[in-house]
């Protein structure tokens, strides 16, 4: 993005300063009475409620429910769709065979299948895991396909010249070369997984963070509702940060390789 020039003190400090001024601004708007206090409780109220909900175990339990479903769906999709995508990407015949079916299903908005999944699987965890799995599958599959397809001919030919067998070629040449693309598919799928998990709890559920937030809104426990939203925002942010960290560690070689101009 921006060139790696040195950042001035102003630029380093301004980000956190602006960010920290956000709750203060919130507090000021709430106290000034510009917006109804019922809808817009003070930041102090929200933070106090958040701590009590964390301490009495309500939010941690809801978070655990949401995240276990999200993780189950996400990892199932990754385990099935990466090999499938790589196989389709490597074989022109498989690609021709599956492309129409994939293009037919791809434009379907994943949340649209929640009510159908409810008919088959009820409103328990299995329905949510399935919906998360379905929603994550397409970005993972398509990126794995593209990654495997775009491995430069030079790499595979070089591997072959050095006598690598088919298995070795796939594991040591093709998969590493496709891994940046595979990772970007996983990165796209991760926020989708969280959104769909929360939504499936809002539409058909009696637990999880999604149900908690919507329920609190319906019974007009507004500070509790905001506390739930803040929790989700924090959780989304932490997941994203963890993934970025893993991405940097796993693909550390890729940045240098790209700059090297291969």
């Amino acid at each position: 993005m921006s060139s790696p020039r040195k950042r001035s003190l102003f630029e380093k400090a301004s980000g956190p300063v602006f960010f920290l001024s956000l709750p203060l601004l919130w507090e000021a708007v709430s106290r000034s009475g510009l917006v109804s206090k019922l809808y817009f409780p003070t930041a102090a109220d929200i933070i106090a409620v958040w701590f009590s909900l964390m301490a009495d175990g309500t939010l941690p339990l809801a978070l655990y429910q949401t995240f276990s479903r999200m993780a189950a769906g996400f990892f199932t999709a990754a385990c099935l769709m990466i090999p499938l995508g790589a196989a389709i990407g490597l074989s022109p015949r498989l690609r021709l065979l599956f492309t129409p079916a994939i293009e037919l299903l791809r434009p379907l908005p994943p949340p649209a299948i929640i009510p159908a999944a409810m008919l088959f699987l009820g409103i328990g965890s299995s329905m949510k895991i399935f919906v998360v799995f379905f929603a994550c599958s397409f970005p993972i599959l398509i990126n794995a396909m593209e990654g495997a397809r775009r491995v430069p001919r030079l790499f595979t030919d070089t591997g072959r010249v050095f006598g690598a067998g088919k298995g070795r070629l796939i594991w040591r040449v093709i998969l590493p070369a496709a891994s940046p693309r595979i990772m970007s598919g996983l990165r796209v799928a991760l926020p989708i997984a969280l959104i769909v998990a929360v939504l499936s709890e809002m539409v058909g559920s009696v637990d999880g963070v999604g149900h908690f937030i919507l329920h609190m809104q319906r019974v007009f426990s507004i500070p509790q509702m905001y506390a739930g939203v803040v929790t989700l925002g924090l959780a989304g942010w932490i997941i994203n940060a963890l993934f970025m960290l893993a991405d940097r560690k796993l693909l550390a070689w890729y940045g240098g390789w790209k700059r090297g101009g291969a």
């Binding site: 926020p191 959104i195 929360v198 809002m202 989700l232 994203n240």
Partner: peptide, 8 residues
């Protein structure tokens, strides 16, 4: 990264 559903 805020899930948009949380804002509903």
């Amino acid at each position: 990264p805020m899930p948009s559903v949380a804002l509903i």
